[in-house]
Design a protein around this nucleic acid. Structure first.
Length: 535
RNA sequence: GCCCCCGUAGCUCAGUGGAUAGAGCGUCGGUUUCCUAAACCGUGCGUCGCAGGUUCGAUUCCUGCCGGGGGCGCCA
């Protein structure tokens, strides 16, 4: 049982003695920011005093007295502070237990949660049109989506990573026409694609190729390659063409009609999305007989439920108006409202040569994701996207990221990992063997740096679960930076292999380093960043 | 006009219903007979945009306003 649960049940018992029944899960246990407030703290007296008709400070004192009379394991003192906080002071032994637990779990099991066991989730992200390379802004969705998927997996979910290829519609005809025009040495048509890559691709294109089919495949391969270089791989590539040929679109329309949600007006076919909170009804089939993008999209999402009981779409801020209509459609098809979730990410602004770079494929002159990866490196590119919340717009000065790549936080974290591995190499070279953990006395780990590092390591399981629930992989980045900082501080002040270090201390410290290796390994994997053994 | 996101240190950003709000960069100054100094340590006079409200307690939740970004098509 972890410390938090341990303290919760102790408090629950004490509350029971005071005549207050409380579910242990509802007792707040947190890590105070200020060390003077102990190792763990509970606000339970403040939270329940009113309901119990008690003075919070007195209630807290009563709880503290009860707990001090028969202290829970590891607890050395229970104190009352402030308006009625119950603060616990723990012996370092609780952190030594944490260390043993981490080593026992290993990279495979540490910070793994079972909250999602038996559930499946389908995450769709990037889904760029197959009309050109990915621009740097797409990199944010690739990094975010993939790390979110890894978080879900770590929490026990079965995950499908999905990319929807819109290989159909007017933009494809324009793309094909642009390739044909460039091939003939002419300018693309009105509304066509003016990017430099179209000129290059047109030269590659065989004379007898179908420009649309060839261009789609060319763009797709280009995108797959860049995504793979960023460590973002997909399980399922959905094609709008195949969807249309399968009859799924007609089936979806039939089902909506059967449900009574469809009506005709002004020659068009509408969906009454206002029934489910949308601001206005939406057109499914235009008066010219052509379906809007919305109808096949509904069919596509309906189909996705066969690849996950929960659907998550990751979209850019310009698509937020899309949320209410698709949510409405999914409910019309009988899916629970909370089974469909759209995560809206704010946009990336790219600065290059001191000026804002355009991200439009049609206008040309864009910064490609490929450029960013080649200039800054895959790890820097990926972690840069995962430094901040997707709720904030991100400004990336490409020149700055490249120029300062050696100062990038990714190296700070990777260097910590490299140090961990260099210890093993040095130990081997000096003939220092690591004794089995069971034979090592961890209680010698009492240096503030050792305890600080252990505290950080103890927080990874909570961090992972919180990051998954908040759909916020950047919280793992923050943790990894804190872990690296704690390791570097420990490294500086706590020598291990030096001759004057006691063998007992050396062994305990080597196991602490091993636990750090596990923590860093788990977090870097979640972030999709490599964990180099030397730098 | 309506909808979504943001507004925290000089800059870029974390963070939390709690008790003295943090990190990186930048500035200035230190640390190595020792496991890679890609490191460590010190150095910050912040109205947590403004005004109300809820609460024992709000920077965090709610409402309004101001400022920035995005969106409101029989486009996708």
């Amino acid at each position: 049982m972890d410390v938090r649960q341990h303290l919760r049940s102790a408090l629950a018992a004490a509350l029971d003695g005071a005549g207050i029944g409380t579910e242990p899960e509802q007792i707040g246990i947190e890590r105070p920011g200020n060390p003077a407030h102990g190792d763990w703290s509970s606000n339970v007296a403040l939270a329940t005093a009113k309901r119990a008709g008690r003075n919070p400070r007195e209630l807290a004192q009563e709880l503290a007295d009860t707990l001090n009379a028969d202290p829970p394991r590891h607890v050395t003192a229970v104190e009352v502070a402030g308006a009625g906080f119950v603060n616990f002071r723990l012996a370092p032994s609780w952190l030594h237990d944490v260390l043993a637990g981490i080593v026992d779990a290993g990279v495979g099991e540490f910070a793994r949660s079972a909250v999602g066991a038996g559930s499946s989730v389908n995450i769709e992200y990037v889904s760029a049109n197959p009309t050109g390379p990915l621009h740097a802004g797409h990199g944010r969705w690739a990094a975010y989506g993939d790390s979110l998927a890894r978080l879900f997996e770590r929490c026990g979910y079965e995950v499908t990573r999905e990319f929807y290829v819109n290989d159909r519609g007017t933009q494809m005809s324009l793309f094909g026409a642009s390739l044909t025009a460039r091939k003939a040495g002419e300018d693309p048509p009105e509304g066509g694609y003016f990017g430099e890559y179209v000129v290059e691709w047109a030269q590659e294109m065989p004379a007898d190729a179908d420009p649309v089919a060839w261009g789609t495949e060319r763009a797709h391969l280009d995108q797959v390659e860049v995504l793979a270089s960023m460590n973002a791989e997909f399980d399922h590539w959905a094609s709008e063409n195949r969807l249309a040929q399968s009859g799924a679109v007609e089936a979806a329309l039939a089902e909506l009609t059967e449900g009574g949600f469809v009506y005709e007006s002004e020659g068009a076919t509408w969906l009454r999305t206002t029934d489910f909170g949308d601001g206005q009804d939406r057109v499914l089939i235009k008066s010219d007989g052509q379906p809007t993008y919305f109808l096949p999209d509904i069919a596509y999402h309906q189909q996705k439920y066969s690849r996950g009981e929960r659907l998550i779409d990751i979209l850019g801020a310009d698509h937020h108006g899309y949320v209410s209509r698709m949510t409405a459609a999914m409910q019309m098809l009988g899916h629970p409202a909370d089974s469909y979730e759209v995560l809206i990410g704010q946009h990336v602004t790219l600065i290059r040569d001191g000026a804002e770079a355009r991200l439009s494929k049609r206008a040309g002159q864009m910064v490609e994701a490929r450029d960013l990866v080649e200039l800054a490196g895959a790890d820097v590119a990926r972690l840069t996207f995962l430094l901040q919340s997707i709720d904030t717009t991100q400004t990336i000065d490409v020149d700055l990221v490249v120029a300062e790549s050696s100062e990038n936080p990714v190296y700070y974290v990777q260097y910590a990992n490299a140090r961990v591995h260099s210890l093993a190499r040095q130990a081997a070279r000096r003939g220092v063997a690591l004794s089995p953990l069971a034979e090592v006395d961890l209680s010698v780990l009492t240096h503030p740096r050792e305890l600080a590092l252990l505290r950080v390591l103890s927080e990874l399981p909570d961090t992972v679960e919180r990051a998954m629930l908040a759909r916020a992989p950047h919280q793992v980045t923050t943790w990894a930076r804190e872990c690296a900082a704690a390791l570097h501080g420990f490294w500086h002040d706590c020598p291990i292999l030096r001759d004057d270090i006691d063998e007992e201390v050396r062994q305990a410290r080597m196991w602490l380093v091993e636990a750090t290796r596990i923590g860093l390994g788990v977090s870097l994997d979640l972030l999709g960043v490599s964990a180099p053994e030397s730098m």
